[in-house]
Design a protein around this nucleic acid. Sequence first.
DNA 1: TTTGCAGTTTGTTGTTTCGCAACTCGCTGT
DNA 2: ACAGCGAGTTGCGAAACAACAAACTGCAAA
Lengths: 251, 251
Amino acid sequence: MENLSAAARPLRVPLACIQDRGIGDRGSLLTGSSLFAGLSSSDCMRIATSASVRIFDRHDFLFMQGQTGHRLMLIQSGTVKLTQLSSGGEEVILWMTGEREPIGFMLDPVEGKCRYTCSAQAMEKVCAVVWEYERFQVFLDQFPRIRANMNSILFARLEELQERFREIATERVAKRLAMALLRLSRQVGRPHQAGIQVQLSRAELAQLVGTTLFTISRILSKWDEEGIVLARREAVVVCNTAFLENHPDAD
Amino acid sequence: MENLSAAARPLRVPLACIQDRGIGDRGSLLTGSSLFAGLSSSDCMRIATSASVRIFDRHDFLFMQGQTGHRLMLIQSGTVKLTQLSSGGEEVILWMTGEREPIGFMLDPVEGKCRYTCSAQAMEKVCAVVWEYERFQVFLDQFPRIRANMNSILFARLEELQERFREIATERVAKRLAMALLRLSRQVGRPHQAGIQVQLSRAELAQLVGTTLFTISRILSKWDEEGIVLARREAVVVCNTAFLENHPDAD
DNA sequence: TTTGCAGTTTGTTGTTTCGCAACTCGCTGT
DNA sequence: ACAGCGAGTTGCGAAACAACAAACTGCAAA
């Protein structure tokens, strides 16, 4: 809440900030993202120049649920959590997104303004490339490949969410947590001497899996004893991936 | 299961079957779908002629989870349920789709074959327009608007599933059922003298909401007594939409 | 009509998981 | 060093819900 103003009026970083990394670097940034797969690096560079770069501190919102506005963002560094708030005030985490992933897709604003249906919050210092939707739309028409890529990304996310929906509808918390940790270590994991580290608190894991932090704590404590994970403060290190993959339905 | 052969080798309806309805009718069929919004009726007609029409009986599969193959289908009449099976054999209903809705989206098969991640089963006699993906891809390149429409559809579905994910993660069964009935009456409801009828059994509602048929039965019995719905055999008639919309978080 | 079957209702029992409270641990600022 | 704070742990009781059993209902085929 105290960061709301930061979301409404994010830090505008002087262009020098990017040009320090060199123009070539800026283009290659886009090339690495699946959103711009198949585009030439010169095209990427052109697209990059019509964007601005913004820095967000930990806990800052990149955008907020209910906010109007059409910004498409590409995360350059850091991880961002996408959350949705219910009318009753309860929050779930829909996605954890990391480097080179685009966020802020919206329906083409056919009539009136569209509102974001979830919030995006920085988990650490985040650097993001930002396009106003109207400027980006030009490229969508100019490079059909971008639309095709958007399709692939949306479809992949839909498939993941379908799977998670089935899990939460049919599986118990332990198995859901196992699956979530595997996905997280792939998507936003960091190398660690004992395995792959995932930077999420118990409460956040609970919001992701659809349970309470107490239940998460119990399960992680057990897995920690068994050497399957390291249950650290505001983080989990996944050690025994094989165990999590083969987690039995009953336990 | 007994219908598997029907899914693998669906009834090929002689072209006469469609041409009975007249060519113009066939084109207008596509025009009504959001997938082809913005295309001229002559373009629609051209696209339609490269499709075939197939009829499926109740319980037949339009496609099955795990199956390879790339067919995009547009439902002409009838309703189809999209289900996903877990490794443990439990099934959830991901979507209920009705007239003019496209199903069978797949990622562009970049390498090797893609497999369907869910099954599509006819709830009643279904007539569907079917494109082999390769033939459809030509139109995707030719009419960028179709890709844009696919984007909108995928995004809308993603948003709905995000909402349902939040519900199942935070709300109790009664509220989830209330929301599900409202969505169903919009998407696949039929007019009924006392309200809007939804053709789903208790077991199917349970698979959609993520609970058991017993819990569904109890809630519907209560709502039936209170006059909010009519709990009929393999169907529910939604009478008091306002009540369902304002369903309290606690109950 | 009878019979059979699938869908539904309802009661009872058991379990998972929630909700809360009390406590510990480790960090930070004064 | 000390207090204070936020994150995590653990125990206990309760609620929601699942699981099973048994009976009931309506429909359709024989």
